[in-house]
């Protein structure tokens, strides 16, 4: 029985303004869902809310991972339960060596998942260096990244493409159950997009559920979703199979606007 993320009637305020107005979604391990929608529809709000950013205030609804209420957990605990967010704009942390950080994060997440509470805590044991190195190197080569890359400071001075690859590298190492990819395609040239997509495809098998958030359907040429949802004005207004992508390509979001309510500025 695979894991399952359930989002039910989710309402979210940002700085007092309601952005999500009752979102329903269900993502199982092994499935790829694309969540599409025009700017301002609430896509990134959903991504941050699921990952547990404190700025996003949930006013109603629930988010469950295998029946456990994620909304009661901090971002760190959600990650340890198997939620992963690939950021649209990864934050630079100067002075923090990427390899050391990854080793710590991987140790905390794995320990929590193997019920090794001691190592899940701060300053707990780290997974053996040799074992970590081996995994790191294989993930690096999968993403066609040089091993020097992880000696750099986390996201500090990375190009757009490097940042996105680094996100997928982290996903590979943390082995989440459900990954939310927030506009992972934005700012990538065609070669980088292909490498990143191949990485996602290699990881999404039976063990990973993907919620792929995107504005453009370009990435869907590389990552084939099982389901497509269209988010509009804080609600999922249409859900369907892969064929929905060609409808969008043909008609654009204007069709959604005329069909489902008032036009959205910009």
């Amino acid at each position: 029985m695979g894991s399952e993320l359930v989002v039910r009637d989710l309402h979210v305020n940002v700085e007092g303004k309601e952005i999500l107005k009752g979102v329903n979604l269900q993502v199982r391990q092994g499935e790829v869902h694309a969540l599409m929608g025009p700017n301002g529809s609430g896509k990134s709000t959903l991504a941050y809310t699921l990952a547990g950013h404190p700025k996003y205030e949930v006013t109603d609804g629930e988010v469950l991972l295998d029946g456990e209420n994620l909304l009661e957990m901090g971002a760190d605990e959600r990650a340890r339960k198997g939620i992963f967010l690939a950021f649209q704009y990864p934050t630079a942390i100067p002075g923090v060596n990427m390899a050391n950080f990854l080793r710590t994060a991987v140790s905390r997440v794995r320990a929590a998942q193997s019920d090794n509470a001691g190592s899940a805590r701060d300053g707990g044991e780290l997974i053996p260096m040799r074992e970590f190195r081996k995994e790191l190197n294989s993930s690096l080569s999968m993403l066609k990244m040089e091993s020097d890359f992880v000696r750099r400071y986390l996201n500090d001075g990375f190009s757009g493409g490097e940042k996105k690859r680094a996100e997928i590298l982290q996903m590979a190492l943390l082995r989440p159950k459900i990954a939310i990819l927030d506009e992972t395609d934005s700012g990538l040239d065609i070669d980088a997009l292909r490498v990143v997509s191949e990485g996602v495809n290699a990881l999404s098998g039976t063990n990973l559920g993907v919620l792929l958030i995107t504005h453009y359907q370009r990435i869907l040429n590389y990552i084939k979703p099982n389901f497509i949802h269209i988010l509009f004005n804080g609600r999922v207004v249409v859900s369907g199979g892969p064929e929905l992508a060609s409808v969008l390509e043909e008609k654009g979001y204007d069709w959604v606007r005329t069909e489902f309510g008032e036009p959205v500025a910009g």
Binding site: A51, G52, H53, P54, G74, A75, D76, R78, A79, R80, F84, L85, F87, P90, T91, I93, P94, G95, V96, F101, T104, A105, R108, V109, A112, R121, D122, G123, Y153, L154, Q170, L174
Partner: peptide
């Protein structure tokens, strides 16, 4: 920065410590 590190499974305190150590690195 805190949220980013925490979203990788690191506690708030450990994340803050990393940021401070990074600052004086």
């Amino acid at each position: 920065q805190l949220f980013y590190l925490m979203s990788r499974g690191v506690s708030e305190n450990e994340a803050a410590t990393m940021i401070v150590n990074g600052f004086i690195e």
